[in-house]
Nucleic acid binder design. Structure first.
Lengths: 103, 103
DNA sequence: TACGAAGATGCTTATATGGTAATATAGGAC
DNA sequence: GTCCTATATTACCATATAAGCATCTTCGTA
């Protein structure tokens, strides 16, 4: 797979708010107002982050009445996020261990 | 795992050159001049991308005489890249399928 | 010590990103 | 149609990123 395409996928995911959105959606579909409530960001900021995920087609959406419901486009998307969390955890574990060695 | 830490990991990986570096290193350790040769970018650009990966501690390095050898800090790093490639491939497949439907 | 090769860093410039505030659009209820 | 709610979009600003070029550092060797 082209490195450019991979990088585009990772770039779309590389923001704390967008990670949080994907984490939420991995547990079930949600409308914008529910995401907004859970994340506690501003509405325009959230909308922009959703548009980044949409542009890369990592999420899909559909209207239900006057709400827009978002869902992950593929379960693979949450695989990326989980793997990144694991790496982040490894990094923190190493850091803790090295502090203990130094102490 | 904090969304901030995950995002930092993904951000460090979200550039085509850095994806390519990780792909190469997932097959074995390499010194800078070998990576440079395989990627065909400029030396300062490569060095900067390596420093981004180093700063996030996704790669480790050691000097061997005149050369600096880089390696992945954890095999989990290449799991992220592989997962992103799979998503990128799914996206392209869907795109191809929709073009065929439209034709 | 002087020199060459391997890498890293600093500076500048162009572009991308993210936040905020204001505005726009679409659907539902009346 | 009018109003209200949910969501998207725009314009603007500050900051971050990436590339290119020049320079510096470190090691190996004569």
């Amino acid at each position: 797979m082209s490195a450019i395409a991979c990088a585009a996928v990772l770039k779309a995911l590389s923001h704390p708010t967008r990670i949080a959105i994907v984490s939420l959606l991995s547990e079930g579909d949600l409308c914008v107002c529910e995401i907004l409530e859970k994340l506690g960001t501003t509405q325009p900021a959230l909308s922009k982050h959703l548009s980044v995920l949409r542009a890369e087609r990592l999420v899909a959406h559909s209207r239900q009445g006057n709400r827009i419901v978002y869902r992950l486009a593929s379960p693979q998307v949450s695989v990326i996020v989980r793997a990144s969390c694991q790496v982040a955890k490894e990094l923190l574990d190493w850091e803790l261990a090295s502090w203990e060695r130094d102490a």
